[in-house]
Design a protein around this nucleic acid. Structure first.
Lengths: 101, 101
DNA sequence: CCGAAGCGCTACGGTTTCCGAAGCACATGA
DNA sequence: TCATGTGCTTCGGAAACCGTAGCGCTTCGG
């Protein structure tokens, strides 16, 4: 995997999550399973080929898994999702800041 | 900014952080200011042109700022960094899992 | 049984992004 | 003056991504 040469696991993780749509796909799955096409619609303009690539990578990493209903987060994926409220709160403050100049 | 059309700030943030090296640059600045070339060396193979692009984006977002010693995280950047221990811990467990099969 | 519709996924050409190497303008120190 | 180090830029080629189309399959209504 890209970026894993250093032997430091977080480098590989930052690499995996630092690809287009990877963070977003996890976020879209926050409220339960979604089908491939629902996921594609949720991510506005993502190309189906790229979505397929990201899903394959996230599944290989054990973050996402296939389900009868489509795709869902694994327990490990849920652990990652637990970090998102912090991101969300930060983004809210960020928007406030910009609005006020 | 890309991905901000939805009006949901987190989308713009996920978009910003989901670019190559963006997450990594923040991580590299965790222990204090680094010069441009130190940052480049820390990120192994990053191209100087891309590093310059990421720094410009992160500065525009108020996450990173220029300092006499080079570049450092802003207070807002430090808030984002506060989420990294969770990522690091996850990555550690991830590596453990892989090692055991 | 047959067509329509929906599914996950793939193929492919064009565009954007990134890499790698070289080098510029400037500052510092010998 | 000359070497060295800095932040940063340029540019050609490679890789990633987008947009569209469509395949093979299943489901459902007629």
């Amino acid at each position: 995997m890209r970026g894993s040469q250093t032997g430091r696991p977080i480098m590989a993780l930052l690499d995996l999550l630092g690809r287009r749509w990877a963070l977003r796909v996890i976020w879209e799955l926050r409220e339960g399973p979604l089908s491939f096409r629902q996921l594609q619609a949720g991510c506005e303009a993502i190309s189906s080929s790229v979505l397929n690539d990201r899903l394959a990578e996230l599944r290989a990493a054990g973050i996402v898994e296939a389900a009868p209903e489509g795709y869902r987060l694994t327990p490990e994926g849920e652990e990652l999702l637990a970090l998102y409220p912090g991101l969300d709160a930060w983004a809210q403050r960020w928007a406030e800041r910009d609005r006020r100049g």
